[in-house]
């Protein structure tokens, strides 16, 4: 069985990439492979906000990622630089930058690009969805 990591750069509000990545993740996990980390970069980080609030008849990508990650014990990591630029922040970064609030979903973490490099080194395959 192989170890996978995914790199997701797709905007959750305007492209199909996040859906494709979720389908790919579910399939590899069903096949018995391991998912180490999903790294969100560029507009892909927009999915990490816990206050994303799509209409009730639409798919909630944030909750879907969170549920899948908790169920299968893999990491959801958003790049800190591009996340902060887009207003996605955790409490620590919010305080450091004197922001009035934070919005990172508790199933996600924000970290540096080193986490992407590590995922590439420690996984058999890295697949990108943009």
């Amino acid at each position: 069985m192989a170890i996978f990591s995914l790199l997701v750069t797709a905007n959750p509000h305007s492209s199909q990439g996040q859906f494709s990545a979720i389908q790919f993740a579910k399939t590899l996990l069903n096949q018995g492979h391991e998912l180490k980390r999903v790294f969100f970069y560029a507009d892909g980080v927009l999915v990490a906000s816990r206050i994303n609030c799509p209409p009730s008849d639409e798919y909630n990508l944030t909750k879907t990622w969170a549920k899948l990650a908790i169920q299968h014990d893999f990491e959801l990591t958003a790049c800190v630089t591009v996340a902060m630029k887009r207003g996605i922040t955790n409490a620590t970064e919010a305080e450091r930058n004197a922001l009035t609030g934070d919005n990172l979903d508790p199933a996600f973490e924000i970290s540096g690009l080193g986490q992407l490099t590590e995922a590439m080194l420690e996984s058999d395959r890295l697949v990108t969805f943009g």
Partner: peptide
């Protein structure tokens, strides 16, 4: 998923 394993690497 199998294609990504049959090949050595993938480029999106």
């Amino acid at each position: 998923v199998q294609l990504t394993l049959d090949c050595d690497k993938s480029v999106s």
